[in-house]
Design a protein around this nucleic acid. Structure first.
Length: 278
DNA sequence: TTCCAGGAGGGGG
DNA sequence: CCCCCTCATGGA
């Protein structure tokens, strides 16, 4: 893709392959804010601001290399979209979510974030994670705090996570911090998707859907299809009435193969914002 | 008031 | 294996 890296910025010229609104609002990330025309993004302990210019988007950051990888800039999404466009069901979602990219997010942050996401809504997920950041993280910008380190999170109690709003998921968080750590998650990268999924499923608070989200947004696996309530509604609307999410997942994986992860994100974004009006 | 949200854990059959 | 229930919380 056409982009330019400077000392403290990245300019992205191909607006059809990079739309910060769709990238950030499509449900894959919880650490961002919009202030006027500027998007502020703060994965892990990094920080960037994105603004649209006439000929390009500019990402202002002290760590452009990190965000070039974070925004998956080296991947050509024209190819992916071209292949996906052969599926008739993808026509509208591709148009609606033009410029979506699958982010390369931190494994440990994905684990914690998507445990909290279970049976929850995005607004409240952002709220809970923001509470945890504000209480355990370090200030990295005005009113913005870093994602806490593993060591810092380990000092937190179940009662603390409940106070942050995590509800009954507080117990899962305390448990999972004992089961694994960031380094162990990195070491799982070498596993094939079947065994990686098996390992993730052994963790507290990680079921089929959460495991698939971690694999897609953290490990960037294309051969996963997270099935949540929106995907299920989408499937019942466009394919057939099925209540078994595991069966839905298998069918969609069989349909989209290694492009499943990308297809899922377009379909999820489209369904969550439009399906209720169809 | 009831229902729902990027579901998972646990028990019983 | 499957089916059923429960688990906080806040907005609609």
């Amino acid at each position: 893709m056409n982009y330019e890296i400077g000392k403290d910025y990245i300019k992205v010229f191909d607006k059809r392959q990079f739309n910060p609104i769709h990238i950030l609002e499509c449900g894959q990330i919880f650490c961002y804010n919009r202030e006027g025309d500027i998007y502020k993004v703060y994965p892990l302990d990094q920080y960037a601001e994105i603004e649209e210019k006439e000929e390009y988007y500019i990402i202002r950051t002290q760590n452009p290399d990190f965000f070039a990888n974070f925004f998956d800039l080296r991947r050509n999404y024209d190819e992916i979209k071209s292949k996906l466009s052969k599926f008739s069901i993808m026509k509208e979602p591709l148009d609606f979510g033009e410029g979506i990219r699958i982010l390369n997010q931190d494994l440990f942050e994905m684990l914690i974030s998507f445990i909290i996401s279970a049976n929850n809504n995005i607004k409240r997920i952002k709220l809970i994670l923001g509470n945890i950041r504000r209480n355990l993280g370090e200030k990295i910008a005005e009113n913005i705090y870093s994602f806490p380190s593993y060591q810092k999170l380990c000092t937190a109690s179940e009662e603390f996570f409940k106070q942050m709003g995590a509800g009954y998921r507080a117990k899962y968080l305390v448990n999972v911090l004992k089961q694994t750590n960031p380094q162990k998650l990195i070491e799982l990268q070498t596993l094939d998707s079947i065994n990686l999924r098996k390992e993730l499923l052994s963790l507290s608070g990680v079921g089929p859907k959460v495991a698939d989200c971690i694999m897609l947004f953290g490990y960037h696996r294309g051969d996963v299809f997270p099935v949540d309530t929106w995907v299920q509604q989408m499937y019942c609307h466009f394919y057939e009435n099925l209540e078994n999410r595991e069966q839905i997942r298998k069918n969609l994986l069989n349909e989209f193969g290694d492009l499943s992860g990308y297809a899922q994100q377009y379909l999820f974004y489209f369904s969550r914002t439009n399906l209720k009006n169809l």
